[in-house]
């Protein structure tokens, strides 16, 4: 599996349906990943759409040396961080809207995480520090290698390794507390 690179090559060669394949494969995971940063499904979706539109506007920027998934997640991360940096006023969310957003969050989770155990881990993940959360997400939810995760997070492989080690320890404790099976 080339994580979309082959489909993207076909899309660049004029096969427009190849883009649908990329969208089907990578759009929801990207939204889910960006949502880890922005904690708002709509914003995450917006950022993911922007990242995908970059694939069309700047086709030469992707050099095919990394997987398309890694590249898209890198785009998504940098855009999510930009969004957080520029977000000066926190929107006050009405209770109904918050309930609605939570519902949509669950919807997204269901769409991305079919595995029940992953869902339990996902719930526990929210209680971890951000770096650990992202490392676990990329490696265990998106099945990225340590190198790919390191590239997306702009960290060294060793740092990702350490983050995952500590995250697993924390998660084990949290899941044991919740009566769930540890990783």
């Amino acid at each position: 599996m080339d994580n979309g690179a082959g489909s993207y090559r076909r899309f660049l060669n004029g096969e427009e349906s190849a883009f649908d394949e990329i969208m089907a494969e990578l759009f929801r995971p990207l939204v889910f990943f960006v949502d880890r940063y922005v904690h708002d499904v709509h914003t995450a979706e917006d950022i993911a759409i922007d990242a995908f539109s970059d694939l069309i506007v700047h086709p030469r920027r992707y050099n095919f040396k990394t997987s398309l998934k890694t590249y898209l997640f890198m785009l998504g991360r940098s855009r999510a961080l930009d969004h957080l940096r520029h977000r000066k006023v926190l929107a006050v969310t009405e209770l109904d809207e918050a309930r609605d957003a939570a519902g949509q969050e669950n919807e997204l989770e269901e769409a991305v995480l079919a595995d029940e155990r992953k869902r339990a881990v996902n719930a526990a993940l929210e209680r971890l520090p951000e770096d650990m959360r992202l490392a676990v997400h990329l490696v265990y939810f998106e099945d990225m290698t340590y190198d790919e995760a390191a590239r997306v997070m702009k960290k060294s492989r060793k740092q990702v390794d350490n983050l995952l080690y500590r995250a697993k320890k924390e998660l084990r404790l949290l899941l044991e507390e919740d009566g769930e099976e540890a990783l």
């Binding site: 883009f19 759409i49 970059d54 069309i56």
Partner: peptide
């Protein structure tokens, strides 16, 4: 949350807009 087809349409609409803006 929008469905995938709507998102795809939005991706193309935005990319066209960006290309126009770049030009």
């Amino acid at each position: 949350m929008r469905d995938l087809e709507q998102c795809r349409a939005e991706v193309f609409r935005r990319s066209e807009e960006k290309i126009r803006e770049n030009k």
